[in-house]
Design a protein around this nucleic acid. Structure first.
Length: 572
DNA sequence: GCCGTTTTCGGCCCGACTGTTTTCAGTCG
């Protein structure tokens, strides 16, 4: 049975190929919507198919045709329609679409007229001056394509949100020297708090766009300007990151902020709703005919559609409109709600700071309780603890707790889930812990059944509190292991166990969709930093962003509770 | 390909900017 992500990838590929063929743009959009919808489902397609009471066509955006294709894909791991497309168009041409400025129309001309099927052939054609001879192309386009080939090879990776934040802050500080600017904000996927960011979109409220763009142009670190018009300017930084600047006036700022924050799917929904009410929304405002009715603030824009303001983190056209119109928008968890951090390391294993230093740092960050969770013995590279070293550490924690005030230190362990199944620390020792998180470090490439069985085994152990980084993915570096998350949610719910949202910006698993799915299954999430040094405690806010995107409230996040309340929750 | 308080056809968000054109198509977000 194919996973949702795999099904979504195929639907996206079909959309790409159809687009390349010049298919109806709305048909292409239907496949892209379908892909996104499947990707965002709180449970696997397999689980829905197995349920006699439900149909794929019950899902908004999935009609008879897509439902059939999704079912075929899920059950046979193949799609004849895709094979037909691939007979007409070689898969390699899709690489052409990744070049900035080269869309399906132009790419199709290159394929049709010059038989260009991949980037190497494209480069050769550019260098031979063949491109400029084509109708609709000229020397400038040829050069843009040539530049784009280099770019496609080097700078197509989305960067971590936390890295984007550093750049965004520098740009905003730079812009703040410009007196023509009234308000400014970083919008786009950055404002929505996505775990990675592809480019930065900056919106400015000003009556003097020229002055703003001139100031922006002086930002150190700009490698090239890729466009500049009356109100909009685009640059590429030395790092390869693209930054778009847009200037509007005060009347338009709210609608522009809404528009540039996206997501695109959310915008389409917003504008469709406006249309149904006889209104029109663009970057400049909400209009009734020619008459401007709203646009100064985002609240005004949503109000014009009879909706409450929707937090940017929820604007993915998932369930936010349904929630908004029924008054059920979740009150999202905030950093200030967090009382404890239940996953961190010390110099006893692979941490960089001592037990005392971590405790002092946690106090400084106003945490009420922390769990020390060093690695267990199997994790040899980290110098993992065996039972005797662990018991010695716990004795030390007991001693420290006697003299501490304002913070409670919990005796914990990050216990390895062994390759063959079972845990790395004896049950009679685990029984003495306040908090046990279990995680997989080895055998990550095992088949789905085996990985899932290992995790379920840990969940079923009565001494275990939570499963840490439940998918093991490292963003841009390592795929998640193949695990049946539906089964994990169900087992966690049955045994009253928590699932971790690891706040490390390279991990951030469970991701937003999985957080929402866990919540739908009645499972509480614990957001933990997995700090390996003092500064590691500060990553909590990235975990909060991810949790917000998952629609989690204070109640959904276990470590917003006091420790006595937590103990009750995990049955200690 | 999806969808329905304009329901089974005919619409589907909207505008800036570029490069190629002499009024607009393509791309992007």
């Amino acid at each position: 049975m194919l996973s949702n992500a795999e099904i979504a990838a195929v639907l996206d590929q079909v959309a790409d190929l159809l687009e390349f063929e010049g298919a109806n743009v709305f048909r292409v959009r239907a496949y892209r919507n379908g892909s996104r919808t499947v990707q965002d489902l709180p449970e696997s397609v397999g689980a829905i198919l197995a349920d006699e009471d439900r149909q794929l066509t019950d899902i908004a955006g999935i009609g008879k045709d897509l439902a059939e294709k999704i079912e075929t894909l899920a059950t046979t791991a193949a799609l004849p329609f895709l094979d037909e497309l691939l007979e007409r168009i070689p898969e390699s041409v899709l690489a052409l679409l990744r070049i900035p400025g080269l869309g399906p129309k132009k790419a199709a001309v290159l394929y049709r007229e010059l038989n260009i099927e991949n980037l190497d052939q494209l480069r050769a054609a550019c260098e031979a001056g063949q491109i400029r001879e084509l109708k609709g192309f000229a020397a400038k386009t040829e050069q843009t394509i040539l530049d784009g080939i280099e770019l496609a090879a080097t700078a197509d990776e989305r960067i971590y949100w936390c890295h984007a934040e550093v750049i965004a802050d520098a740009i905003l500080s730079h812009l703040d020297e410009c007196s023509a600017i009234r308000r400014r904000e970083v919008t786009g996927s950055f404002r929505r708090g996505r775990e990675t960011v592809g480019d930065l979109d900056i919106l400015v409220d000003s009556d003097d766009a020229e002055a703003v763009m001139d100031r922006f142009d002086e930002f150190p670190g700009i490698a090239s300007q890729t466009g500049r018009g009356d109100t909009k300017m685009s640059v590429r930084l030395d790092s390869g990151l693209q930054v778009d600047l847009r200037v509007v006036n005060a009347e338009a700022y709210g609608t522009a902020l809404c528009y540039f924050t996206g997501s695109q799917a959310h915008n389409i929904e917003i504008r469709s709703r406006a249309k149904q009410r006889g209104l029109k929304i663009n970057e400049y405002g909400v209009f009734w005919g020619e008459e401007y009715v709203a646009g100064k603030t985002e609240e005004d824009v949503y109000a014009a559609l009879e909706l409450p303001w929707i937090p940017p983190q929820l604007r993915e056209s998932r369930r936010e409109f349904e929630w908004a119109e029924t008054g059920q928008l979740p009150q999202l968890v905030e950093l200030a709600d967090i009382r404890g951090d239940l996953h961190m390391h010390t110099t006893a294993t692979d941490g960089k700071n001592s037990l005392e230093e971590m405790i002092a740092a946690a106090r400084k960050r106003k945490l009420k309780y922390i769990a020390i969770t060093d690695h267990s013995q199997r994790v040899t590279m980290a110098g993992g603890l065996d039972e005797s070293r662990l018991l010695a550490q716990w004795a030390e924690i007991d001693r420290l707790n006697d003299s501490l005030s304002g913070i409670q230190v919990l005796k914990g362990i990050e216990c390895d889930i062994l390759e063959k199944g079972g845990l790395d620390i004896e049950d009679d020792v685990l029984a003495q812990a306040d908090w046990v998180v279990c995680s997989i470090h080895y055998g990550q490439n095992q088949p789905r059944e085996q990985i899932t069985r290992r995790i379920l085994g840990a969940i079923e152990n009565p001494h275990v509190s939570a499963i840490a980084h439940p998918t093991g993915r490292l963003i841009n570096r390592r795929k998640p292991y193949d695990v049946d998350l539906d089964a994990v949610y169900q087992a966690a719910q049955e045994h009253g166990k928590l699932l971790e949202l690891n706040a490390n910006p390279a991990r951030l698993d469970l991701d937003d969709v999985a957080c929402a799915a866990a919540k739908a299954h009645g499972v509480k999430i614990v957001i933990s930093t997995d700090a390996h040094k003092i500064e590691g405690l500060d990553v909590m806010r990235y975990g909060i962003l991810q949790a917000q995107r998952g629609g989690l409230t204070k109640d959904d996040v276990a470590n917003t509770r006091t420790w006595p309340q937590m103990k009750k929750l995990i049955g200690k």
